[in-house]
Structures are given as structure tokens and as C-alpha cells.
């Protein structure tokens, strides 16, 4: 059992996009605020802060979750992937990011990190999604600019691209 007292800061060590990092958090600090304000990883956006809009979605141990419904202390020793972690190792756009860029699947970009991290996890479970399945998954993400059609198109293209690479690697 470990007790974290209120109004005191506690050291949290975890993996952020593959690198071990350390930050300090009070028990009531949300993961979303911890990432942005303490760690300085501002790619994760904060919208409604009670689990409705999906903008703050990150991956925790590989699964897409709401960072605003998770406490910073809960990620101790765990693996967190944010939008920053979806870029290629050289820092250029990753496959999913590129597909969104090329299909005009973002306008203001506020919701985009949540869509990308959600898709990154979902394509690992279902590499060949249909439009209907994608729309169902994206019911947990709100976008007020694009009307979703471009997002669906980009997601289908990203899935195809990833499949192509997978089959090339198998050969």
C-alpha cells in the first residue's frame, strides 16, 4: 500500500513516448494537466475535462484512454504515448498523421490529438476497419470543424497504408 498525502508533491516516474521521465504531482492532479503543465508535453489538448469530448485521449499501456479521467499518480511505472509519440523517429509525420494532413482531416487541430491516439490503438485491434466501425469508435471524439467525413477518409487511408507496410515487411 502506498499513501500519497494531499497538498504535497510526489515523484512520478513513467515512460513517455518510450523515454523514461520524472515529474512531480499532487494526488488530485489529472494526467492531462500533468503532461501539459509539469512535463511540458502540450500536444495533448484539454477540452471538456470530464470525459466527453475526447481531445485529451492518450495511450496508457497501449490502450486509448481519457487523460482527464486519470490521475497523474496512476501512471507510475507505466507507458504513456501521446500525439508526440506518433511522429516518425526522425521527427517527420507518422503514417496516421500524414493521412490526416493529406486528407484535410483537421482544421483548427484542437481535437486532432485525440482522434490520432484513438485510431493508433484501434488499428492495432482492427487493422481493416469499415466506415461504420470507425464512426462508432469516433463517437467518443468531438470535432466541430471538419464534419467528420475527411477524418473517416483519412483513417481508412491510414489503415490501408499500414496494411501495405505490414505485407511488405512480411515479404
Amino acid at each position: 500500500m502506498k499513501l500519497f498525502k494531499q497538498s504535497a508533491k510526489h515523484s512520478i516516474k513513467f515512460f513517455l513516448n518510450g523515454n523514461q521521465v520524472e515529474g512531480f504531482a499532487e494526488p488530485n492532479l489529472l494526467l492531462s494537466d500533468f503532461l501539459r503543465k509539469e512535463i511540458g508535453a502540450t500536444g495533448t489538448h484539454v477540452g471538456c475535462e470530464h470525459g466527453i469530448c475526447g481531445a485529451c485521449t492518450v495511450k496508457l499501456d497501449g490502450e486509448a484512454i481519457r487523460a482527464c479521467l486519470c490521475l497523474a499518480i496512476q501512471v507510475e511505472g507505466r507507458d504513456v504515448v501521446t500525439i508526440e509519440g506518433l511522429a516518425d523517429t526522425e521527427g517527420s509525420l507518422g503514417i496516421i498523421q500524414k493521412a490526416f494532413h493529406e486528407n484535410f482531416a483537421l482544421q483548427c487541430g484542437f481535437c486532432t490529438p485525440g482522434f490520432l491516439t484513438t485510431l493508433d490503438h484501434y488499428l492495432k485491434i482492427n487493422p481493416t476497419p469499415t466506415e461504420k466501425e470507425l464512426r462508432e469508435v469516433y463517437s467518443g471524439n468531438m470535432c466541430r470543424c471538419t464534419g467528420y467525413d475527411e477524418i473517416i477518409r483519412a483513417s481508412l487511408e491510414a489503415a490501408n497504408e499500414l496494411l501495405k507496410i505490414k505485407t511488405l515487411n512480411l515479404k
Binding site: M1, L3, F4, E26, P27, N28, D33, K37, G40
Partner: peptide
Amino acid sequence: MAKKDSELKKMKPAPFDLCVAQSVKE
């Protein structure tokens, strides 16, 4: 990078102690 303490104080939940339990008994 890290912001001032005053900004971090603006937290959504009210303060609480957090206990990470390892067993039902605890």
C-alpha cells in the same frame, strides 16, 4: 516547460489523499 506553482493549484478535483492499494484486505 514546467509552469509556476500558482497555475498548478488550479486543479479540477478538490484535494484528497490518494492510497494505491495492493490487496482487498488493505
